[in-house]
Simulated scan of single mutants.
Amino acid sequence: MDRVPPGQILTQRFPILTYGEEPRVSPETWRLEVRGLVEAPLVLGYADLLALPQVEVVRDFHCVTRWSRLDVAWKGVQARVLLERARPRPEAVAVLVHSYGGYTTNLLLEDLLREDVLLAHTLFGRPLPPERGGPVRLLVPHLYAWKSAKWVQAIELLDHLELGFWERLGYHWRGDPWREERFQEGPIPAASLRFRSKKT
């Protein structure tokens, strides 16, 4: 199977694209909240994250600006591990991810629960540098890279889809590279804006 989604160009470089000022957050001051529609809200520091089970993944990385880099090596904690501890409520079906500096992006909860979605702190065997979102960024390798929020600060679980920064400016509400979901064409389907409880 071809590893390069349609419209993408392979590069050996790893461009750094950031809108606005780059937040500077030290490992000592970094905190992550898991909040919203959860039974047990969490607040973790960097040391707490390192104390959790660690995984390494090698995944391809696809930017909506049409470049792809293959075989990027990450290390971190699976997002699903944190969500298991926070215990999402039945009506939680979507997520708004908040970053230091004010950036936000949205995800479906099912996307966040995939086994290769990480809170990543290591890139190619070295601590994640600030310009790439360190000390900790979200990695969502099956979606375009703007969903892999840098400098992640909070994961907020919701019963509806709330658009993030780029999504409000016209980027697609999901961002699947294989479907070239770069920009939202036409209205967002009503079913995507609010989800029913899984028990109804």
Rank of each mutant, 00 (worst) to 15 (best):
W173T: 08
H121Y: 14
G134E: 12
Y171R: 14
E110I: 07
V117C: 15
L128T: 07
N106T: 12
R132L: 13
P53E: 04
D116P: 04
V95M: 14
A79V: 15
R132Q: 13
G125P: 03
P141K: 06
E156S: 02
R89Y: 05
L143V: 14
E91P: 01
T122M: 15
A154T: 01
R66W: 03
R89I: 05
L50D: 03
R132S: 06
A86T: 07
P88E: 07
L96W: 06
K147I: 00
T65V: 12
K75W: 13
H160Y: 15
W146V: 02
A94P: 09
L157R: 10
L119T: 08
L112W: 03
L119F: 15
Y171P: 08
R69H: 14
E115V: 13
L109T: 05
P130R: 04
L128I: 10
L107D: 00
A145H: 03
D111F: 02
I155G: 06
C63N: 12
K147Q: 01
V140L: 11
P141F: 08
Q78W: 05
V152I: 15
E56L: 00
H142L: 12
D48S: 09
L83Q: 05
V140D: 10
W146E: 02
L70W: 11
R114D: 12
W74I: 07
C63V: 09
V77E: 01
I155D: 04
H160V: 10
A79R: 07
E156T: 10
D111M: 03
